[in-house]
Design a protein around this nucleic acid. Structure first.
Lengths: 199, 199
DNA sequence: TAGTCATATGGTAGTTACTTCCAAATTCGT
DNA sequence: ACGAATTTGGAAGTAACTACCATATGACTA
């Protein structure tokens, strides 16, 4: 690896780290891009070259976790068992997110307080689900392929969101794997159980 | 109704109409808020009082359709049959959207081209699904209430999105009701069918 | 009808995210 | 060490949004 790439990765990480520092300390809105650039010791112009929007600073980590797993799924053989594959996708996303629990928590806090952050987070999730739908549609056969693909992709994303949400709300991390396991049972067991009216 | 409210509704509609006109003619990014204000014959200051962000101009109609149906659902009796209720929610959203097919199409076009629009659209959908989850959780009993509520709300929203997407892609509107009917069968029939691997 | 009160309007000034462009600096291949 | 390619930082500009205030307009009362 050349010195060029090394420096690039270093500046990128430096910017990202300083941004999270400032965001957690002073909030998203109260931190200006120029402050982040100054803290990372780069010009604002350089910062924008690495992160086109302020929200990217917050969400790149989550996006990488999601789309990394999606890329893996796309490379799997065409006759892959879909429940197995989707279970692996979920596990890969969760594993990746677990590498940085603090960042995940911070992302959720910022999203809860700042509309533009939650908007971009929702958009990333939406885009991910759509791409998974396309990939699934190419692997399905039978009637209403588009339909089944979209619903399956939606359910997969729902499971991820629920597990992560529960994980974030629960500082005690032991139940996460259990919940994920229970959720994956749904993918394998045939679908969502009928809602039961309150007794 | 006083003259005040009348004028308020009139200016609001005037602003919204002119905004859609300019957006469809010249695109979202190429239209400035000042241009919209000038076209609607109000000051920029007034425009911002009615629509806090530029994206609101595009999405208010969709948001009203979604949350109107949600408000209706919240007012239903506690022992309401949930599949029935959710079916009605879906139907109400679709009926409301069908009152303005051109706007729905325009919203989708703008969302496809402009990231900030799709971001805010995704956020509105996300917020709607979360509120439906809370409402459902209060009406459910049994194990893993939160879990079932979130998955059911997600599936409900997925169905709406799929039907609307298909409707937008299909200028011929006859299949919409069929698709909606088929989708609602899923809510009643017990869940999502297992994906079938391609033959 | 006149007076006053509450509310709606429009303009001004300012902040900040983001874009475009260019000159200087740094790294790479020869 | 020299020239080519790439990265950087700064300067100038656009436009969304905010805060604030003076003015105008509809609503209510004597």
């Amino acid at each position: 690896m050349g010195l060029r790439e090394l420096k690039r990765e270093r500046t990128r990480r430096q910017i990202s780290d300083k941004a999270f520092e400032l965001f957690t300390d002073h909030g998203f809105a109260r931190t200006t891009v120029e402050q982040i650039a100054a803290a990372a010791e780069v010009g604002p112009s350089t910062l924008y070259r690495y992160f086109p929007t302020k929200e990217t600073l917050v969400l790149e980590f989550v996006e990488d976790s999601l789309f990394g797993a999606l890329d893996w799924f796309r490379e799997q053989p065409a006759d892959l068992d879909l429940p197995d594959g989707l279970q692996s996708v979920i596990e890969r996303v969760l594993d990746q997110l677990e590498r940085n629990p603090d960042r995940v928590r911070t992302v959720y806090e910022l999203a809860g307080k700042t509309p533009s952050v939650s908007a971009h987070l929702a958009e990333a999730i939406w885009r991910w689900r759509n791409e998974l739908t396309v990939e699934l549609a190419g692997r399905l056969a039978g009637d209403s392929v588009e339909f089944t693909a979209a619903l399956t992709a939606g359910t997969t994303m729902n499971i991820i969101e629920i597990v992560v949400q529960t994980w974030v709300d629960n500082p005690d991390g032991t139940q996460v794997k259990d919940l994920a396991h229970e959720a994956m049972g749904l993918l394998r067991g045939g679908g969502i159980p009928l809602p039961t009216v309150q007794a």
